[in-house]
Structure formats: C-alpha cells, structure tokens
Design a protein around this nucleic acid. Structure first.
Lengths: 339, 339
DNA sequence: TTAACAGCCGAAAACGTTTTCGATTTTTTA
DNA sequence: TAAAAAATCGAAAACGTTTTCGGCTGTTAA
C-alpha cells in the first residue's frame, strides 16, 4: 500500500513527472488531451499532493497561528469562531495556543509558531506582557502579524480593537441618563490597557455630566471574574450605602455583584442599576437580565483574519504593506439591570 | 538576509552537512569536539531546522487535528483547553476545526486534516453524523484517531466518554431522594446518543424507585439552549400543575427554565427542584445556584490527547495498538436548586 | 527552401533535512 | 609489528514537489 505520487501517475501514463505536475495545475504548455488523461488517472488513484513537499517547495504552510490568553472564555471563543470560519474558507488552518495570561508562555509560543513556519500570527496579549521583544522578533522576521483586543502600542503592526474608553463612556452615561447620581466602578487590574481605558471612560463620563469623581468608589478586580465581583460588591456594601449605580468591567463581575445584591435584599435596578461589559450571552439569562456593552467577538475574529490575509498576500507578491488599525463598533444593550 | 541551514553551518566550519546534522542530534559517531563546535556555531547563527524539510523527511508533522461541534461552548472549550495544554507539553500543536454540528462540514474537515497529514485526529461528532464513511477512511489510512464525548459505536477506535446514562440516573435519583414525586425531563433531540442515554437514565431511575414513567412529562429541546429551556418550561407550566422536580439535559436549558419559574412566582426549589447537567461554571452564579452533574471537560481533553499520543507512538514503532475506551467519572454537585 | 514560430514535452535543479553505508583514520590487541 | 577494532567522517540517496530552461516536432511566413 504505497503512497500515490506524481511519479506513480507519470509511470502509469508513460510521461514525465513534470508534465503530470503541470497538467494538474493547468499550465498552458500542456495539451488538453494529456491534461484530461492525467486528471483522470489522478482521480482514479485518489492522488493527493504531499503537503510536506509542497510546503518545502513553496515555502508556505497555509497555516496560521493564534495566541489567546484563555480558551474557556466567551469573548475569546467567539473570536476563535470568527477566525477559524473565515480561515477555512480561504484554505488556511489555524493552530491555537493559550498563553494563560502568562508572558513567559506567550514568548515560548511565539517561538513555537515561528519554528513551525506559520504564514502569519494573530495574537491577543497576556495582561502582563510589557516586554515585547518576542513580538518585535516576529516583525523583524517579516512574518505577517495582527494583534487584536489586547494590543501593544509599541509594536508597529495591524490592530483590530474596540474603543474601550468610548464604550465605557457610553455605559456610564447610560447609568447617568437613567438617573444615577453615585456611580461605583469595579475595574480590572492596573496594568492592562483595557482596564485603564474603561476606567478612563467611566471617569470622563462622570466629569462631563457634572458628577464629582470619587476614587473611593472604584474597586479593583484582579482576575475580573465572578468571585471578584462578589468580593468587591461585599466591600462596596460595607463601605458605602448611597450607591445607586455600578459599572463593572465585565459581565462576569457584574453577575457576581448582582448575586450579592440579590442575597442582601438590595433590588436591582430599583435600589442600584448595574452595567456589565461584553454582552456575554449568559447576561440575558440571569435575573435580572444584564444591561451591558456588546463587544463583537465574532466580527473581531473575522476582521483579524481578513487583515492578516491581506498582509500575507502582499508579502507573497513582495508588495509593501502598511499596517492598519480597525476600530469595531460596540453597542449599548439595555436590559433589566438598569432603569 | 538568507536562511540559516545545515549547509551554511557546514561551510562555515569546513565540514560536511552530514556531520553537522548528526552533531546537532547527538549521534554517537561524532566526536565531542566537533559536536561542541557545531552547536556553538548553530547557536551563534540562530539556526532553526526547517520544519518543512523535517516533515518531508520524517513523514510526520508533529501536529494533530481536533474537530468539535462548537467552539463557543463551555464544555467543548474546556476540552480544548485540556487538549492543547498537554499537546504543547509533548511538542504537538493542535489545529482546531468546528463542524457546526454539520455532517457535511465534518466530512470536509476530516479530508482537510488528512491532506494536511496531521499525525492524529481527535473528534467529537456532529449530532447528525450517522453516515460514518469519512471516519472509516481515517481508520483505513491507519491514522491514529480518538473520539470523545459524542462518539459512534460503529467505529473501532479509542474513545473517551462519560457514562451519560448513569450520570442521568444519579441526577434523577437525587431529585427522588430529596422528595420529588412528579419529575419532568427536558431532553435533547431524538438522535444524539447523549440525549438518548440521559433520557434512559432518567427513566430507569424512576422505575427503580417505584415512580411510574409518564411520557407526557418529557419535553424535547432540539437545540439544547437557553431559549429551548424557556419554551419547554412554559409548555410544561401550561400542561401540568403538579410537577415538583425537573431534570434538564443541560445547564443552559435548566437556567432557561429557572428564569421562567422565577418570573411566574414558582419557587425553586420549594415548589420545584431542578437539576442541570454539565456543571457549566455559570451554574454557580445564577440565583438560585444550580444543582447539576459535573462533566469533566478538562480531564476529557487531557485523556483524549494522552490516548492519541499512545496510539501515535505505537504507530511510529509499528507496534499493534488496541483501541481503548475510557469512561470518566462524573460527580453530583448539589447546590440550591434542589432540596 | 529556409527561417521563424507556436505548441508540447522533459531533464534537471532546487527546497533542507535524515540516514545508510562505506571510507578513512586512530587506537587497541595479539 | 601486524591485524583487528573502534572512532570519526562524508558521499549520496531519498522524501515529493515546483519551475526554469532548453529541445523537439510540426506549422506558417518570407
């Protein structure tokens, strides 16, 4: 049971390997008759080109790499969804790696992808990635790369993002518009740009609407998850009793907070209005359903791959490529956790 | 700016390519002195082997394929997590494909993976995959394959599963033990084995405990999601008023049902006890928190890859490999939606 | 009749690695 | 000191494809 190769077909037909190869790829200097013959024989033998040889010869793998902080995560899995669907359509396969929010791992994985010779790399940074020499290496090797969501401004490459600051502004403004006067904010860790930007949007909205910014109303959620939300809410309750609005950096944090309020007889949204962020789909399934900002994960994945594709094409044709930055629209989603 | 190759190193050192190759791989017939020289030079030039050439020569890609019905799904993303983590440790990369529960797509993707010459394939079947000729092809080509969670009994390969029937039995028994007499079941579609097995477990538990099985208490949720849960719950409410227990095929269905009961003044668990299935982590975040069956996604991913690895190793050594079936333990998780 | 040309085909190099096997040198043994 | 054994190296084939370039045939134009 041997592999079917060009050689095999050539021998069967009594012609050269060259002609077989060219016939299968519709080169103009092969007669219609031979083309038909070759194609028929290829089909008969179930010929499939050996990708290993093709890769070696063409110097491309038709494979792209994707690094995300977490796989088990609604937003990122939506991005993955958008990416692999469009990649497959264009004949590319996707290798997925998870940095676990670790800078060290991220660095290793970049090396892995480079040594695997993927045609391009898509990455959303780990929160603690401040050193970016590994990313610079990708640029230096002239490997197409697109960053999305969690990006670094220090690297010159294409970027697909949302305007976190603006979105947070809209979220906070919605709380203000619905009558909230004392609005707390559960923010993320101090370093990640997302966390900073959302905080700044919150602050700006307050200031623009005549509400004094009060640092004691801002709580830090390091891991930005359900438990963080619970703890921050408990702390908030013990330290303040006049809060009527809360903007959380994540739906998950918001859900944690809601559960605390539910347990303590604080009515949402009557006593306190709550905004989440992401529109993780479970936010429509809790009680009360959560008002939030829709973060378009699928679209981001799609745009990320399409941009990478352009860059890969340009590279193959040895054309210059100017990195672009695309800002995707977010949407305010009003449900029952706000008035 | 040329690529660094073995040839390059050989020329620099005035020795042969063969020796360089062997030195880097610690062949015994290279002197310590040359080895040191070669390694030093390799490091100096940042030599990285060309995987394309290695693949061609060794006939393996050190890459495995993974096909799942859905990426944006808590259980499957947990499996993905378990797989890619352990694969990376062993030097394998993972290509992820999503069948979108479509048999047609699944078939194409298998072909894709075959033509990419992955070293092995892991797959959880689409619900409507009854024809399994594409899987048989994988077997025929002697490509290592492991099926997990949604499997087909007709294919002779390794399988990693849970005992759905037993788990459903435990879930239903928990309802019975806590005093429920009239227990409804929101099941999945008619075809998928999971759906059938969970239904059978439910039925068996009733029968074993002297409760008459009543077909009118079983509702079908085609898509097994939140909306299905809502609709089934509404229907249940309109058709029956004596239900005191409900076992749902999925946490998501259960959450949908709970929201309906919440809205209609039906107290959970006082009026009706509810069991989910999966222990999707949001189930601890809703009110009331959901009692459920823990389905070990991460462990399943880990076991799936490890089994595949064994099979790949056996193949390389041309040893026979006897497919195994591993049944992972599930756990009853009691929270506040049951008494 | 010759030159030019189009149409068709194949030899051969190249991609970069791995591995077999034989050659050469050095060391050990008798 | 000669023979045997060990240590070290390299030539070359192989993996299967793509592509350049030149050759051959037969037709057309001058």
């Amino acid at each position: 049971m041997k592999e079917v190769t060009l050689k095999q077909i050539a021998e069967n037909l009594g012609i050269s390997i060259t002609t077989v190869s060219k016939a299968l790829k519709n080169y103009p200097d092969v007669s219609k008759k031979t083309k038909a013959l070759v194609k028929e024989e290829a089909k008969k033998l179930h010929y499939k080109p050996n990708v290993f040889a093709v890769n070696l010869r063409t110097k491309q793998s038709k494979t792209v790499g994707l690094i995300i902080p977490e796989v088990v995560h609604h937003f990122f899995s939506s991005v993955v969804n958008g990416i692999i669907e469009h990649a497959e359509k264009k004949g590319y396969l996707v290798i997925i790696l998870q940095s676990n929010e670790s800078y060290k791992l991220e660095q290793k994985q970049i090396d892995l992808l480079i040594s695997k010779r993927v045609d391009g790399i898509m990455i959303s940074l780990a929160s603690n990635s401040t050193d970016i020499s590994h990313l610079q290496e990708v640029r230096d090797l002239n490997i197409p790369m697109v960053m999305f969501d969690k990006i670094s401004k220090l690297i010159d490459c294409s970027k697909i993002i949302i305007n976190d600051r603006k979105a947070a502004y809209v979220a906070t403004k919605h709380l203000i518009d619905s009558g909230c006067k004392r609005i707390a904010h559960f923010r993320g860790a101090l370093l990640p740009q997302n966390s900073i930007d959302r905080f700044l949007g919150y602050k700006k909205a307050l200031e623009d609407h005549g509400i004094q910014y009060d640092p004691s109303l801002v709580y830090i959620c390091e891991r930005v998850d359900y438990k963080d939300g619970i703890e921050a809410a408990k702390k908030l309750m013990s330290e303040h009793d006049d809060i009527d609005g809360l903007f959380c950096i994540t739906d998950l944090v918001a859900i944690g907070a809601i559960s605390v309020f539910n347990d303590n007889g604080i009515k949402v949204p009557d006593d306190i209005s709550i905004m989440g962020f992401s529109n993780w789909f479970i936010s429509s399934a809790i009680t009360p359903s959560l008002s939030t900002i829709d973060q378009p994960g699928y679209k981001m994945g799609k745009a990320t791959f399409k941009t990478l594709l352009k860059e890969m094409k340009a590279k193959r044709k040895e054309l210059p490529f100017k990195p672009i930055t695309k800002v995707l629209e977010t949407k305010l989603v009003v449900r029952n956790s706000t008035k």
